[in-house]
Nucleic acid binder design. Sequence first.
DNA 1: GATTGACCGAAAAACAATTCCAGTCATAAG
DNA 2: CTTATGACTGGAATTGTTTTTCGGTCAATC
Lengths: 190, 190
Amino acid sequence: MDRKKQVLEAASRSFALFGYKATTMDQVAKIANVGKGTIYTFFDTKEQLFDEIVNGVISEMKSIILREVDHDRKFFDNLFRVLDSFLEFRSEHELLIKLSQELRDVGTPQSQEAMAQVENVILGYIEKEIERAIARGELRDCDPKIVSFLMVKMYIALTSEWNKNHEPLSKEQIKEHIRLFLENGLAANA
Amino acid sequence: MDRKKQVLEAASRSFALFGYKATTMDQVAKIANVGKGTIYTFFDTKEQLFDEIVNGVISEMKSIILREVDHDRKFFDNLFRVLDSFLEFRSEHELLIKLSQELRDVGTPQSQEAMAQVENVILGYIEKEIERAIARGELRDCDPKIVSFLMVKMYIALTSEWNKNHEPLSKEQIKEHIRLFLENGLAANA
DNA sequence: GATTGACCGAAAAACAATTCCAGTCATAAG
DNA sequence: CTTATGACTGGAATTGTTTTTCGGTCAATC
């Protein structure tokens, strides 16, 4: 039985369920059915264990992007395909949702760090794709840094900030509004 | 000498400079050159005094909107005209900037309340204007609630969130990007 | 050699002592 | 008599102290 895997599994669940601060190493050991010392044969510190898990999530996201993005297709085609996959896979977002909540409520530095890392990875990908799309004449000439920043902010606004005062939006509504702002623009006409 | 005006003036400056929590009534009294008791002849509580000032700011904003919006003009015309005035008048935003900072750092409920009030007023105006513009066929058919929400989020993202990790954007950059997302859309073409 | 859980110390939570400040009111000034 | 004042009060916030919690170690066990 792969003990390391057991530990990772247990820690993953615990972090996603209780956040960084509220997960104790004793708890992880118990869930994983291992002595606490065993954890420390695989991971030097709680923080390293956490990083490993966060990196796992980031890798999953990267692989989604890699899988869905095809440079022979249109920029918006790729964008909405990735968006779809992200909106679909709540499971791996579970951790991120908990962390952003923890960040709001307690301001745990580790959760802040983790969120920033994830955001930067996504931001980097979008930026590159925007550059490529501009070069290919698919997008207007614009500042990729600012535009990718705005795209991520829009995504966050629609998927989580909106929910603070309203009923959550459906995946279709989210996609439609991103399309409205990014692709078409608000102005009527053609 | 109008004592009430003196108090409002002093409190205004103090709230804008130190935030809600860090202004004391003794301080306000001192700045206003009044005894502390005098303040309580005009205002029942510190919170009421604060509300009065916040309402003043909201009124100023409303009057800017009233002054700049002309329903004979195009929606975007009016939008950018108001935007211009808002970006220009940092002074009255001073208080709001301080309050959002206080909200971030300490989470003072009064500053949260104030920010929410301001946001709702703006949101309401934009929503109405969007409805009108849709009815006139100037804008695509869309959900005014969601779209006004996104517009405000975009404004906040560009004017304050961006500054956390980057050099502040110029007024022109901010307007250009709002135009890019709202009016034109990102897609190249014509 | 691998695994464990009792153990350690540092860091956080809980609690107590102290300071601070919104709001009052007896007194003073006009 | 009316209006203004600032010393005073009590409860809330802050600071200082004790207790508990938990990340990490390591001698004992398998």
